[in-house]
Design a protein around this nucleic acid. Sequence first.
DNA 1: AAGTTAATAAACCAATCGGTCAATCTATAA
DNA 2: TTATAGATTGACCGATTGGTTTATTAACTT
Lengths: 216, 216
Amino acid sequence: MGRRDISEIRRAEYAAAAYRALMRYGNQATSLARVAEEAGASKANVLHYFKNKEALLAAALRHANAELLREAVLLLGEAQTPLERIYAVIETNLSPTSFRPQVAHAWIALCAGVPYVPAYQRIQTVIYARMRSNLMGPLRHLLPAAEAALMSDLMTTAIDGIWLRCGLSLNGVTQQEARAQLEAVLDARLPESAERRAARARMHEVARILIKARNG
Amino acid sequence: MGRRDISEIRRAEYAAAAYRALMRYGNQATSLARVAEEAGASKANVLHYFKNKEALLAAALRHANAELLREAVLLLGEAQTPLERIYAVIETNLSPTSFRPQVAHAWIALCAGVPYVPAYQRIQTVIYARMRSNLMGPLRHLLPAAEAALMSDLMTTAIDGIWLRCGLSLNGVTQQEARAQLEAVLDARLPESAERRAARARMHEVARILIKARNG
DNA sequence: AAGTTAATAAACCAATCGGTCAATCTATAA
DNA sequence: TTATAGATTGACCGATTGGTTTATTAACTT
């Protein structure tokens, strides 16, 4: 175990601790002291590996995003048709890994900081670019360019709105309600068909299997 | 000018100042000192009228919500058909009063605090209840109950997502893009028709007139 | 005019914030 | 074994936070 390894290990540890704190206590209450406590380390050592709080929280959000990305890659890897790729995106965003109030809290905190913290802005830009790429790819095969762009934007918007509501969790958006809403979005330009039914069923099944495998 | 009046005047002044601070500097940077400076008063006097910061910011958000509500009432008052009432909601949320990054910032700050600040939660609950009422009313006339509820939820979700994007304003959601997305949402269950075209045109015109009157 | 009440603000407070520093400890390299 | 570089930390710092206290001013009541 070289000294170089420790650096990376600590950075990952502290980023994960910061993410946990962000989920549990919210942005306001996530101080360096609390993150250090969460990680079982000293505040000074956290700052030994991150030049400041902003860098730490940015790493925390990238850490969380990487988790989500891993799930997306798995699902997209199983998709074989454009419609299946669209449902892969939907299933990813509804998977229990991400569709949880606590996770949503962390992302809302990110959104709140975007206008004032350049590092957050960069993360958000990357996330949106990937979302757009994941959706535009399959949509281009199914719709004219303008309509594909519209549907990509609308699905992104709807997913954002669903996450927001999930984070507030006032009346607690059910996964089923969220799914129904996203299906309705699809209805606007990709009317129900045998292909769509098949794609939905298959990716739902793939998601179920992957989740079970991860938990088991 | 009785002493009772001054109390209400100051409360309104300070709430408005807090809302301005929330829009300009974000939640993080909105301190009592800054709000007092924004209001041209002393911090102590702000706390003389609000028992603490939480109450002040809650009043600020209610103040902002009241502004939005006034606009909604005006538009809904002109709507004469169910479809027009739906478009009244859409136009309200796209009006330049509310559809601005700064305004969205303030609301995102609210959302970020909802899980931790009970007062914010109450405000959010009221807002959602009114939105649902405004949408379910007309939708019930146009769709079966279950479909009406679905569309109400979906429109709320989409509006939330649009506001969120507006607040981030990375690629800057245009009012036109937002309108196109909401039209696509309607397409899912209320296909384009002569009635819908008429309702859209009329409420768009009503909104234009009201905005012009307010600015002029 | 006198007395009471509310409006206002300066000064102050303890707590906490993000961040620095100097000093230890530890483990590898020589 | 000793030297050295990195890991780790307690103590500390100035700034800022939300909130209180105390004193002064202004205004209504009688």
